[in-house]
Nucleic acid binder design. Structure first.
Lengths: 230, 230
DNA sequence: GTCTATAGTTCGATAGAC
DNA sequence: GTCTATCGAACTATAGAC
């Protein structure tokens, strides 16, 4: 956003977008510290000095790259969530699918930039560095609040504290999908494929739904009263 | 392990362990690329050259640090799992508690080294870099196979593919606990605290148990047949 | 085992021409 | 808006004395 030129959007592949695309791919593969401004400039086909002209510092380049795609993904999620509730109260599964699928799909869009962002957002979300925490707070907290209240609407018994905790657990399950490392394939003897996003989401949604319903049923308050834990 | 000196263990705080402790703390806070050998040497109170004398390269130092605590954590998990099955077939909740709690507890041990490792293992587990994947495979795949078969024993209806997927989803939920960023506090208006590990595990276990039971019930096979998704 | 000193590389950022 | 050239700092790793 705020392109600086007259064009706000379009097919014109300017150098600014080329830099952001290259940065997204390289940052996702090697992290913030592991990626050099030199390598980004080379991948984008521009001089290194141009990166500093457009973004000032490496940190601001990272933040703009992160915000750019976060906004696209969250706009798609909010739009789907709104259209869901426009037709009445949706099912829990529909809400969870709306939460997880756009991030997965847009994070794996191979056509442009793609396939890298979902991995990147996992490492930023798990990072305790204040800069990473600020990036998550700015880009994802408003969305989180929308979905937490949506969860409470579709699951009447769910208390707010459990909705928040449950939301974060769902994000944790989603992280498994967003960072396909090949481990699922290895551990399953190649019977499963963690690169098969559709299948992963199709399993993650009912898993998360069952977990949340157990919260709504009031199963957990103090040490699982009748579950027999320890 | 393989200390090099006559001492295999003990109170003797040799420089080798001091280096590993400092490395654990700094790598967890700033990542592999973001941590310099200089800063580790300084934190350990030794010359930088000593790091290379003991470990050769930065990469091998990281691997030894990672393996050291992984072995301690997984030994505790296996020991608890074995003692659980020695008394008959445990509950699903007991198995999940055994999977999650030692990593959390040992990862948050403030007394020595501590509190850092659990954050570190999250970033390594989510990393797609072949070196990180190898570290996870070497240190955690044997444990994963043990727990996956344990899940199938305590949940008779659970197919192996779903057990593997479910195991990874549980690890995803656990990641939420292992990387406390303060986000839970913020989103809940300080009604919850993600630094309260006990409470987090007490909620994560029933959440994960409900998710796994839904797999065992055969609720998911092809697009959630009767759930009404989309 | 532990140190000092340093070689050799790469980094983020800037200056200044066009 | 884009480039070439370069500064000064930081990095990993090694050499060699003790």
């Amino acid at each position: 956003m705020a392109n600086g030129t007259t064009l706000t959007k379009g097919a014109k592949a300017n150098s600014r977008d080329a830099i952001l695309d290259a940065a997204e791919r390289l940052f996702a593969n090697s992290g913030f510290e592991g990626t050099s401004m030199r390598s980004i400039a080379e991948a984008a086909g521009v001089a290194q000095a141009l990166l500093h002209y457009h973004f000032g510092t490496k940190e601001r380049l990272f933040a703009e790259m992160f915000t750019r795609r976060s906004e696209a993904i969250n706009a798609a999620r909010i739009k789907r969530l709104d259209s869901l509730f426009a037709q009445g109260v949706p099912t829990l599964e529909e809400v969870l699918d709306t939460l997880l699928r756009p991030l997965i799909e847009l994070g794996h869009d191979e056509s442009r930039g793609g396939s890298y962002f979902s991995r990147l957002v996992v490492s930023v979300a798990a990072d305790r560095d204040p800069r990473s925490c600020a990036l998550i707070a700015d880009n994802y907290d408003p969305l989180a609040r929308r979905f937490i209240s949506a969860l409470m609407r579709v699951l009447p018994g769910l208390k707010e504290a459990d909705a928040v905790r449950g939301y974060l657990f769902v994000i944790g399950v989603g992280m498994t999908i967003m960072a396909p490392t090949g481990r699922l394939n290895r551990l399953s003897g190649d019977r499963c494929d963690d690169a098969d996003i559709e299948s992963m989401v199709d399993h993650a949604v009912p898993f998360a739904a069952a977990g949340l319903r157990s919260f709504a049923a009031g199963a957990v308050t103090a040490g699982t009263p009748e579950g027999g834990l320890q």
